[in-house]
Design a protein around this nucleic acid. Structure first.
Lengths: 188, 188
DNA sequence: CCTGATTTGGAACGATCAGTCAAGAATGAA
DNA sequence: TTCATTCTTGACTGATCGTTCCAAATCAGG
């Protein structure tokens, strides 16, 4: 039909995730994006619409990837508590890179409905999966029966945010692991 | 000798804290500051030096206030564990407003040494106080003896960050309280 | 009352911002 | 090959950024 694009939109999106997670939305300029994505200015605007839309798309993609990684770890062991532990350990191991989710929450809070909607949608599936796994672990005797599974799930997710903020603040892998272990201890 | 200032630097700083904690550094413009602080542009630059220096001063002052509030809650009860609980509950109660500390960590990470230095200095005193109170609580039998007090302290601080991120993401007071309770449970 | 010192507010600065335009380059279909 | 269509490139836009300059205003000391 006509000239094909010289880049792959998804790869560009991945590069955009890398910039936004490190510098935030306001801290990222259009020129940084053009340089990092390796595409022309006009291509960027033609393909993604603008800086804000690109940001939303990046958060969306990041949330999907992150959810998948969480679910995968969660299901990686037959015993529920081992799945929970694997999920925590993956967060610890990957915490060296800033989390775009935490970043977007801190930067915009609940002020941008479109952004909050992306986060909520991505979080729903994960939340359900964690709740289910905690219930399992309660049946298996690895999580205290008096704990509300929903609260425990929110606690784990908050702990992930805490671990990631700590990592962003300079905490090393050793300390992060201790944080993860203590978070799990709260459920025992 | 000459014309006195028409504003009080510390009050202006408090106003600056209010703007920065809500919009971050990059998200705050000089005009927003001028309007919110209620002082002239030139007065702002004469008094504080510039946007970045004002930000550093705001973080500094915020860190001092926050540290004091933590220490006060920590010492508010004779029994150590009650002091720890009071500290957690204060964080929960004040989480409706964004935390400038968490914000600055998320926005800049370890990239700005001057900023990291402010945080580290403010954190040192608090960390020592929490460690001491946790040791006390261990002696009193309220915190498990096999827990490393330093790790537990870092865990509590990370939990504060988690609670604050959750609040910024829209979690209500009820949920935040559950997070705080679970964090304390990890120490028992 | 002056006079020297300092603050103040508004205009203005160059730089950079996100976003657009136009013209050339590259493609597939006819 | 030719043509219509799309993509790419780089110059360009008005707006806004943080910051500075300057003149008027306001004080304290003599």
């Amino acid at each position: 039909m006509a000239r094909p694009k010289e880049f792959i939109a998804e790869e560009a999106l991945d590069a955009a995730i890398g910039v936004f997670r490190e510098h935030g939305f306001e801290g990222t300029s259009a020129e940084m994006l053009v340089r990092t994505l390796g595409i022309g200015r006009q291509s960027l605007y033609d393909t993604f619409g603008g800086k804000w839309q690109l940001y939303l798309a990046a958060v969306q993609r990041y949330a999907a990837r992150e959810t998948e990684a969480h679910l995968s770890a969660l299901a990686s062991a037959p015993r529920a508590v081992d799945g929970l532990r694997a999920m925590v350990e993956r967060v610890v191991d990957d915490a060296a890179e800033a989390c775009l989710g935490v970043n977007s929450i801190c930067e915009f809070g609940t002020g941008k409905p479109e952004l909050a909607a992306i986060r909520d949608n991505a979080g729903r599936t994960l939340t359900r999966a964690i709740v289910a796994r905690i219930r399992e672990a309660q049946v298996e005797g690895d999580v205290a029966p008096d704990i509300d599974p929903s609260s425990a799930t929110e606690f784990l997710q908050a702990s992930f945010a805490g671990i990631r903020v700590a990592a962003r603040g300079g905490a090393g892998h050793r300390r992060l692991r201790a944080l993860g272990q203590l978070a799990l201890r709260a459920l025992a």
